[in-house]
Design a protein around this nucleic acid. Structure first.
Lengths: 135, 135
DNA sequence: TTAAATGCAAATAATTTGCAGCATA
DNA sequence: TATGCTGCAAATTATTTGCATTTAA
């Protein structure tokens, strides 16, 4: 059994070929793909894969804490298989989304009394080095 | 001329009745409304108002720095007329979006070399006091 | 009188839902 | 076999676009 299959099983998620494929892809890319980008990337290798399954699966992973759903791109959700603490940067010019480190425990805002957060996300929007160089 | 009209004029934006209405509404609510919510709120008082104009106007305000577009609600953009530095909290239970303060200069991540951010947003997702009390 | 702003209708894009068949415990 | 998973097609929701009309500098 693959590592990924074991990871899924360990969380009580049946390790179907589609789920393994999608989770492996998410964990192996830094692209922060949209649901449709995941579909387009994997569909050639598994032609029966459907968008429905991609949406179902990404939603499942997010609920189960195996992936992050990013609202950084106003139009579509983008997904990140790296759930460790880090920030996200979106370049206005190329649309790319990049990770950036935040110091350990760096994102822990003091919320008003009574609010409890289970998820914190830090987004920066601006220009990435390549686009800055390109002018 | 109203304060709002003056504010728009000062930015080189023609202060049409629709723009004044929408900006006044945005600045007078803590609801972080979606584009459609803005439309539904204002349409009764100005029946000729169209969704197109609401979308156009909100987009203009965001580009001109008069409002913030929040990607905190995975499905739709929500808008905030308060552009001062603060964080946003979304309650999973009721869907409400709340402001919370961050200490001055509190959101200034160290980005990798070459990245320049013109906008930083901090999102927390969890449970608000009312929903926590409701169980 | 000219450019900008508005708003209707249609188009597009992202996502969700209903449901039937398949796979697997 | 019973339950969960997949995927097609249709539906829904959010947003954008094309274009004719109106408004105001």
């Amino acid at each position: 059994m693959s590592d990924t299959a074991a990871l899924l099983s360990g969380r009580g998620i049946r390790p179907s070929p589609q789920r393994i494929l999608i989770l492996d892809f998410l964990r192996g890319t830094k692209e922060h793909p949209s649901a449709d980008a995941v579909y387009r990337a994997l569909s050639p290798g598994l032609p029966t894969l459907s968008r429905t399954t991609v949406y179902n699966t990404l939603g499942l992973f997010v609920r189960e804490g195996l992936a992050l759903s990013l609202g950084i791109d106003g139009v579509q959700s983008r997904f990140d298989g790296d759930t460790s603490e880090h920030g996200h940067f979106r370049c206005r010019a190329c649309g790319g989304v990049y990770d950036f480190p935040v110091k350990a425990g760096g994102i822990s805002p003091r919320l008003p009394r009574g609010f409890t957060a289970d998820l914190v996300q830090l987004y920066c929007i601006g220009t990435c080095p390549s686009c800055a160089a390109a002018g």
